[in-house]
Amino acid sequence: MNWNAKEIALLKKLWPAGQSTAQISHRLGYSRNAVCAKLLHMGLRRDHHKPPTANPKIIAACHRPVEKVMSQKPATRQPNQFTKRQPYARAQKCATP
């Protein structure tokens, strides 16, 4: 793609004015990637930098104060292990009136 001086001047004017690359590409008739590549090649970039949100606000669904929740796993019991005769002995106890 060949950029002429008029298009480069317009690019230099529109970019600092806050136009997006999509808007500039539509106006100049180039693809968005071509405009991005030209901006990169020319070293043009926005002066402002949008930092990530440092302290995001978390809004609870209910308006009650939330206590600190500690997840505790319930204690698991080991299954009783029977000898071979114990289940039969229990069954006989239950069967006798």
Results as ranks from 00 to 15, higher is better:
residue 95 A to I: 06
residue 60 A to P: 05
residue 57 K to V: 15
residue 21 T to W: 00
residue 63 H to Q: 14
residue 77 R to G: 01
residue 80 N to H: 13
residue 18 G to A: 09
residue 28 L to K: 00
residue 21 T to D: 11
residue 70 M to Q: 01
residue 51 P to S: 14
residue 4 N to F: 01
residue 57 K to A: 13
residue 5 A to R: 07
residue 7 E to V: 00
residue 79 P to H: 11
residue 73 K to M: 14
residue 93 K to R: 11
residue 72 Q to R: 13
residue 93 K to A: 12
residue 8 I to Q: 06
residue 8 I to M: 09
residue 26 H to S: 15
residue 42 M to K: 09
residue 33 N to A: 13
residue 11 L to P: 01
residue 49 H to S: 05
residue 95 A to E: 04
residue 46 R to Q: 13
residue 43 G to H: 08
residue 9 A to F: 11
residue 61 A to E: 09
residue 44 L to R: 06
residue 50 K to N: 02
residue 64 R to N: 08
residue 40 L to Q: 15
residue 64 R to H: 10
residue 31 S to I: 06
residue 29 G to C: 10
residue 74 P to G: 10
residue 36 C to W: 00
residue 25 S to N: 03
residue 3 W to A: 03
residue 21 T to F: 02
residue 18 G to V: 03
residue 17 A to Q: 07
residue 84 K to M: 08
residue 51 P to G: 04
residue 23 Q to S: 05
residue 83 T to F: 02
residue 9 A to Y: 09
residue 51 P to V: 07
residue 83 T to L: 01
residue 55 N to D: 03
residue 29 G to L: 05
residue 58 I to T: 02
residue 45 R to F: 03
residue 74 P to K: 11
residue 20 S to I: 06
residue 7 E to Y: 00
residue 54 A to Y: 08
residue 78 Q to W: 01
residue 49 H to I: 05
residue 26 H to C: 00
residue 74 P to R: 11
residue 67 E to R: 15
residue 79 P to E: 07
residue 34 A to Q: 02
residue 23 Q to H: 01
residue 37 A to Y: 08
residue 14 L to R: 08
residue 10 L to W: 07
residue 27 R to T: 07
residue 22 A to L: 04
residue 54 A to K: 15
residue 1 M to G: 12
residue 88 Y to Q: 09
residue 32 R to D: 03
residue 74 P to E: 02
residue 74 P to C: 11
residue 88 Y to F: 04
residue 31 S to M: 09
residue 34 A to L: 01
residue 48 H to T: 05
residue 65 P to D: 04
residue 94 C to P: 02
residue 32 R to V: 09
residue 54 A to M: 01
residue 7 E to K: 00
residue 72 Q to C: 14
residue 60 A to Y: 04
residue 28 L to E: 00
residue 77 R to K: 13
residue 92 Q to G: 01
residue 54 A to V: 08
residue 29 G to W: 04
residue 47 D to E: 11
residue 72 Q to P: 02
residue 49 H to D: 10
residue 12 K to A: 12
residue 66 V to L: 03
residue 49 H to E: 07
residue 31 S to A: 12
residue 37 A to H: 15
residue 37 A to L: 05
residue 86 Q to M: 04
residue 20 S to R: 15
residue 44 L to P: 00
residue 1 M to V: 11
residue 13 K to M: 03
residue 21 T to P: 02
residue 81 Q to K: 14
residue 26 H to Q: 14
residue 24 I to L: 01
residue 15 W to E: 05
residue 87 P to E: 05
residue 23 Q to M: 01
residue 43 G to I: 10
residue 7 E to W: 00
residue 2 N to F: 06
residue 30 Y to H: 06
residue 71 S to D: 03
residue 22 A to E: 13
residue 42 M to D: 08
residue 56 P to L: 15
residue 51 P to T: 03
residue 25 S to G: 08
residue 10 L to T: 03
residue 33 N to D: 13
residue 79 P to Y: 03
residue 19 Q to F: 13
residue 53 T to L: 14
residue 6 K to G: 04
residue 3 W to Q: 05
residue 30 Y to Q: 13
residue 60 A to N: 06
residue 21 T to I: 10
residue 34 A to T: 04
residue 78 Q to S: 10
residue 51 P to H: 12
residue 60 A to I: 05
residue 33 N to S: 14
residue 31 S to W: 05
residue 72 Q to V: 06
residue 6 K to T: 15
residue 35 V to Q: 00
residue 55 N to V: 12
residue 19 Q to P: 00
residue 73 K to R: 14
residue 43 G to Q: 07
residue 83 T to I: 02
residue 60 A to L: 04
residue 88 Y to C: 07
residue 68 K to N: 13
residue 28 L to R: 03
residue 26 H to L: 08
residue 4 N to S: 02
